[in-house]
Every structure is written in C-alpha cells, then in structure tokens.
Write a protein that binds this DNA or RNA. Structure first.
Length: 288
DNA sequence: ATGGCTGTTATCCG
DNA sequence: CCGGATAACAGCCA
C-alpha cells in the first residue's frame, strides 16, 4: 500500500476539500472492501451525513461523520484503507465513474471516489483494525528502549518484525528497507539480537525516512481527477503533469537490486523474507 | 503467453 | 503464543 507517508499526504489534500461537505447518493459497487458492513446498510447510513473531520491513524484514514438531524444527531466513524492499490479523490459530477470504483458519493457539488483495483483496501464502519496498532512513529512512546523491549523475545528477522503494525505503525515494504539501510542494519538480523545502539539508530532512521517522504509528497503538485497514471508513489490521480521523480531514483535500496549502492558502490541485493522482497546493501548493512 | 512480480493484512495452520 | 504460508485481486512486465 501506500505506506504512512502516502496516506498522510492524501489526508492533507483531502481534508480541506472534504470537511464540512455533505454526503449524497452513496453508491457501493464492491462489497469486499466494506465488509463486514452490508452495502445497503452502509449506503443508507452514509446518506446525508456531514463530514466533520478527516484524520489519519497509521495507514488508515478516519472519516468522522455527523448523521443528519432527522436521523437523530448521531455520529458515525468510517475507516478507510488503501490496501495495495486504493485511491481516493474528488472529481466533477459529469466525469464518468472510473473502472474499479469501490464506492462513490456526491459531496456538495463534486463526486468522491474510492477506487481500488485489487480490492485489498477498506471502507467500513468496522473499527476493529485500529485495536492493535502500535504508536505512531513520532509518538513520544516510540523510543529505542520501547523498541528494544518489544523486539527482545523475537527470533524473527527485523525486517519482518517491523512490518508488524503493532510494534510501530506506518512502515511498509519500501520504507522498512530504507530505514534499515539508513541505520546500517542487516534486514536478516534476529529482532531479539538488536543492540541498544542499533535501536538508537533505528528509531530516528524510521522517523526520518517517513518524515522526508511526507515532505516530498506534500511538495508535489497533484491533480485529483483520478485520470493520471502513476506519480511514482503517491496514490491519487495526477493531472498528467507526471513531473514526479521515478521511485527508484529516490530510494537508497528499494527496488535497486543489481545497482550500485550510493554510499559504497556494492551491488544492492534482493532476498525474499516472509514472501516479500527485501533490498539491502551487503556492505553498509553488515550483521554485527 | 505464461509465470512471476507488486506499496497490505487477515486468517489458517503446525 | 509464535511464525510461516496462503488467500484475497487485477494488472504489468519479461
């Protein structure tokens, strides 16, 4: 998916556009991403709601809605997740509904679209996924000590552990590789054997990787018509400007197998861990 | 063209 | 419990 930075950037774009708008004619075209909600019930629950606030937790977007007065002034919280291929954007009402649209609704003169080719994303009132999330990477609770304590008893590779959102949330396959490179840690290192010194490098490495990606994403001029192809990483329609730097250019290791390390010229390696690609520099990330 | 790859995560087994 | 494997899905690329 879109990892934390992409979701944060999406939030910053959507928040000023969506907050205060009223949902009309919600239409659900794919049942899977809204489960366990039932299409008809969710659609009728959304009808007429005012979008009070949009926020982010981990890789989730949170829609806090106010139900219309005639249905009694209640509130409704919806969780959105982009999965691997989700996009959310606003488009003019006269633009056709795109292929792979999961759901759409009118929002005061425009149309909000959640599109998701692979349908791994979510848009649901089921909040249970928030339950086991670890701290945000910038939370005061996310300290080297905390990290070391949590990793202590695990023999699993650090790369794999860091994909577990209950340790610290927001990392995905790309930024975990980048963060491990930046902290000089071999991705195969058993989590429990990380030293305090390594944890002290890892925490800021994670924070800085994510922070820089947010900064980059927020600086890009983006269109939201949903018609653009890809803009490297950031998951919303672009207006065809296609100015963004191609992804591999921005990364130290991710997707750079066979290319020279930018720091030491060693050949970047690709291995498979937990059925996912891991990229690392065999020289800069030696086991200690 | 067939198979392997893809930014995620829930669930099912041993 | 822990951890590995698989499934959910469509498209792209070699």
């Amino acid at each position: 998916m879109p990892e934390l930075p992409e979701v944060e950037v999406l939030l910053r774009h959507l928040k000023p556009q969506l907050e205060g708008r009223v949902i009309g004619s919600p239409c659900i075209l794919q049942a899977r991403p809204i489960r366990p909600d039932v299409p008809r019930s969710l659609a009728s629950a959304l009808q007429g709601c005012r979008i009070n606030t949009l926020s982010r937790r981990s890789k989730f977007l949170i829609f806090d809605l106010a139900t219309p007065p005639e249905r009694g002034r209640g509130s409704l919280r919806i969780l959105g997740h982009l999965g691997m291929t989700g996009r959310m954007f606003l488009q003019p009402l006269d633009v056709p509904i795109p292929k792979h649209t999961v759901l759409h609704f009118s929002a005061t003169g425009e149309r909000f679209v959640f599109q998701d080719v692979r349908r791994f994303g979510r848009f649901t009132s089921d909040l249970s996924s928030l339950q086991d999330l670890g701290p945000e990477p910038w939370d005061a609770a996310f300290t080297p000590r905390y990290l070391r304590d949590l990793l202590q008893k695990s023999k699993q590779a650090i790369k794999v552990r860091l994909l577990d959102q209950s340790i610290v949330c927001g990392l995905g396959n790309i930024y975990v590789a980048e963060a491990l490179f930046r902290s000089g840690i071999d991705p195969r290192t058993a989590a429990g054997s990380l030293t305090q010194a390594q944890c002290e490098r890892l925490v800021p490495a994670i924070q800085n990787c994510l922070q820089e990606a947010v900064k980059l994403g927020a600086s890009l001029a983006l269109g939201f018509d949903g018609t653009g192809s890809r803009d490297g990483l950031f998951y919303y329609g672009s207006d065809g400007e296609e100015e963004a730097t191609p992804a591999p250019e921005r990364f130290q290791v991710y997707d750079r197998a066979g290319s020279p390390c930018r720091q030491c010229n060693s050949v970047i390696q690709r291995i498979v861990q937990a059925a996912r690609s891991t990229f690392y520099c065999p020289h800069c990330q030696r086991r200690r």
